[in-house]
Every structure is written in structure tokens, then in C-alpha cells.
Design a protein around this nucleic acid. Structure first.
Length: 237
DNA sequence: AGCCAGGCTACCG
DNA sequence: CGGTAGCATGGC
């Protein structure tokens, strides 16, 4: 029988250790080994610049890899564009050039401008989710990434990794975002919001790591920490 | 050399 | 509503 979601979280945490999301470039500069991650430290982000960087990263990473996002963040910084005001003043072609390696660079340049305006309006106040969703270019996953990782609000991020992992673990299910999010969060509602946000932060980071190591697009089930509870165990590679 | 990568909007039936 | 074409680059 399927174990409670919280048991899956415990198994992942035990197997992989604390992951330390969201990656921040300042930390990566201080210690390149860290990759910008900060395991066990839920105090971050601590500044408007860091919150903005997380939002920009959340937009840039839409349907691309984090490695490409880092190139784009470097490009923006070199152009002096890693802040709301400069982004709003810059010619769109300059922004596009800086973020080209991330793909969809025309759409994303516009999204960064739309988000800059929104950020200036709300930060440091955590924006209401519907307000965030009304910004052009920000859908449910990007909104929840910003709310959880930039503003420490307890929203679980459902991304492609999460969908794939849940589908493998539980088989076919309701694929709608809200449904998956509810499945993942309902057993944590007794926690205080601050603590719940920390759990969602770590849990989502665990899902991503699990999905990059074992539960990949092409699965590698040997040694998987979830083998004993996975509906697909034995049917995949 | 085609598939995939931490989605979203617009538009279709 | 639910489903999907288009957006674009780079790595494997």
C-alpha cells in the first residue's frame, strides 16, 4: 500500500541530505563548491536583490535547464540589468541579447519587464497569489516558486519533476496543478506557516534531486531510495 | 540528429 | 473547461 506523503519526504531527505534551495549567485561567488545552494539555512533570501534574483531565475528557468539560467543571469549582471529599474529602462533588444542562451528570449525579455514592474510595486510585501498570476508570463509554477523561495510563503511548487515522480510513484492520476499540489500538501497543514514553508522548500528540492538522479526521464531504478514504495518498481530500468 | 530541459499564452473544439 | 502549437537555445 502507498505510504503517507510525509514518509516519502523522510525517505528522500534521509537518502539525499538537505539540498539548500534556492541557489543564489552571491553564495556561489563566495564558495563556488556550493553552487549557490545553502543546505539547512532557511533564512535566505535576506535582501530585495536576492528576492528579485529568485524571481528572475524562476522566469528564466521556464522550460530550460538551470545551467542555461546561470549563463543568462551572468549576462544580465554584466549588462547591469539584474535589478528592476535598469530592466525597465533598457531597450528590449539589449535584454534579449543578455538572455539569449536560455531560449524563448523574446518572450522572457518581456516577462522580466512585466515582473520588474510588479516587484517594484509589492516587494518586500509578499504578493497575493492571484495578483502574481495576473502578471503576463507568470503561471502557477512560477508564481509558487516566487512565493515559496523568495517570500517564504507555504506554496508547494509543482513542476515537471514533481509530475513525473508522482506519476511513477502512484500511476495515472489527476494531472491538474491544483490537484497535485493538494496531494502533496494536505498532510502538512497542521504545521505553522513558517515551518510549513521550510518543509515545502526542502521537499520540493528533494523531488528535484531525486528526479535528476534516479527518477530521470530515462529512469535509473537501481539503488533508488523509493524502490520499496514505487508503483513502477520492476517495470522500469 | 533527434529529444529533452525546473512553462506560459493564445486559441481550438 | 481540457488539450495543444508556438516560442528558441544548448547539451547530450
Amino acid at each position: 500500500m502507498t505510504p503517507p506523503i510525509s514518509d516519502i519526504f523522510s525517505s528522500l531527505l534521509k537518502a539525499h541530505g538537505s539540498r539548500g534551495w534556492w541557489p543564489l549567485r552571491e553564495l556561489r561567488r563566495q564558495d563556488p563548491q556550493s553552487g549557490g545552494y545553502h543546505p539547512g539555512d532557511f533564512s535566505l533570501p535576506v535582501s530585495a536583490a536576492q528576492r528579485f534574483e529568485i524571481g528572475v531565475g524562476a522566469i528564466l528557468t521556464q522550460n530550460t535547464t538551470w545551467k542555461q539560467v546561470e549563463v543568462c543571469l551572468d549576462g544580465l549582471e554584466r549588462a547591469g540589468l539584474l535589478a528592476p529599474e535598469p530592466l525597465l529602462l533598457a531597450p528590449v533588444q539589449v535584454i534579449e541579447k543578455a538572455i539569449r542562451p536560455g531560449g524563448y528570449f523574446r518572450q522572457k525579455a518581456r516577462k522580466l519587464c512585466e515582473y520588474s514592474r510588479f516587484f517594484r510595486q509589492w516587494d518586500p510585501e509578499p504578493p497575493p497569489r492571484p495578483e502574481l498570476l495576473s502578471v503576463w508570463g507568470i503561471g502557477e509554477e512560477t508564481a509558487d516558486s516566487i512565493l515559496l523561495y523568495a517570500y517564504k510563503q507555504p506554496f508547494f511548487v509543482v513542476d515537471a519533476y514533481t509530475r513525473r515522480l508522482l506519476e511513477r510513484l502512484f500511476g495515472e492520476a489527476d494531472p491538474r496543478y491544483a490537484s497535485l499540489q493538494e496531494k502533496l500538501t494536505k498532510s502538512f497543514l497542521h504545521l505553522e506557516p513558517v515551518r510549513r514553508a521550510q518543509v515545502f522548500n526542502e521537499f520540493h528540492a528533494q523531488v528535484v534531486h531525486q528526479s535528476k538522479t534516479f527518477c530521470r526521464s530515462r529512469p535509473l531504478c537501481r539503488g533508488c531510495p523509493l524502490e520499496s514504495v514505487c508503483a513502477s518498481a520492476g517495470r522500469l530500468v
